[in-house]
């Protein structure tokens, strides 16, 4: 162990390949990934897959309203009580869900990382203030606050994303701050400071790469939460009535007595889609967790 020896780092590309191999060794991660890819592809092709305009009121050949039709070749999942094609609504509903999930994930990890890094890096008053803010936000009941915000800001997908982001960032911020506190004790940070690196250089070049895996983890967890929240908000009637989403379909079915008419073809598929997408998010973050914290894997 002479001080002059250099540490040999594995080549970057090989590191990535091992990481990917280890990631996909977890069967959950594979399943999660497959589900996501399928839904993303379906979401892109939705316009082409939907045989009808999801809001169009359809009529049968003899001029009758095509209401509450059972599944058939023409309408794979049947029609709603107002003669709208359920399958077309279902595939068009992929888009808002993915939009909400992905944008909220980006927002949560960005805001959580920013607050966590600022608090942990600068410490002192900044830390105290930001952590008190975190406590307050964690004291807000989640769904009630989203509803109140949705009612006050108006119903739209963007507002749902906004509410999810401002409620979910504290979890990420707390963990990232804790991670930063240990990181700050490491020698390479001190070395950077001694050589006169600016705050922004230390944060961007030395700290962020070490924090990134954690912020991605919290981002991936938020995807599911955001999709579930959007569905709940729509179901409670505070959603955008012009966007066909799975939550909207469920609310429509509930309000149109689909339950007592036993129209399972109407209200089961949207729920199953939500289960698949959200569970896929859980599976993905599980595989990801194994990758960052290999010790946890038992």
């Amino acid at each position: 162990m002479d001080g002059g020896s250099t540490i040999v780092l594995p080549a970057k590309r090989r590191g990535l390949r091992t990481a990917l191999r280890r990631y996909f060794a977890d069967p959950y991660a594979v399943v999660g990934c497959v589900i996501y890819v399928v839904f993303i592809v379906l979401g892109i092709l939705a316009g082409w897959l939907a045989q009808y305009d999801p809001t169009e009121i359809l009529f049968t050949d003899d001029g009758q309203l095509a209401a509450s039709l059972p599944p058939s070749a023409a309408h794979w999942l049947g029609t709603t009580n107002l003669g709208r094609d359920i399958f077309s609504q279902l595939v068009m509903g992929i888009r808002p869900s993915l939009f909400v999930g992905i944008t909220a994930a980006v927002g949560v990890s960005a805001l959580g990382t920013a607050v966590g890094v600022l608090a942990g890096y600068f410490g002192g008053v900044v830390d105290t203030l930001l952590m008190r803010l975190t406590d307050v936000v964690l004291g807000l009941p989640f769904l009630p606050f989203v509803i109140v915000l949705a009612a006050l800001l108006g119903p739209s997908l963007q507002n749902v994303v906004f509410s999810v982001v401002i409620l979910l960032w504290p979890n990420a911020a707390r963990i990232i701050r804790a991670q930063l506190l240990t990181l700050m004790q490491r020698q390479f940070i001190e070395a950077a400071r001694v050589t006169g690196a600016s705050h922004s250089r230390i944060i961007l070049v030395h700290i962020l790469p070490n924090i990134l895996p954690l912020s991605l983890l919290y981002g991936s967890i938020s995807v599911g939460w955001a999709i579930l929240t959007q569905a709940s908000v729509s179901f409670l009637g505070f959603g955008d009535q012009d966007t066909i989403s799975w939550g909207f379909m469920l609310q429509d079915a509930y309000a149109s007595q689909a339950l007592s008419q036993a129209q399972y073809n109407w209200f089961v598929p949207p729920g199953l889609c939500i289960v698949f997408v959200v569970a896929a998010g859980f599976f993905l973050s599980r595989g990801y967790e194994n990758l960052i914290f290999p010790k946890l894997k038992q």
Binding site: G224, L228, A231, S232, F235, G247, L250, A253, Y254, L259, F267, P270, G271, I274, V275, F276, V277, V278, A279, G281, F282
Partner: peptide
């Protein structure tokens, strides 16, 4: 992963 209200429905 299932929305509570959907389980209820």
């Amino acid at each position: 992963a299932a929305p509570e209200f959907w389980i209820g429905m």
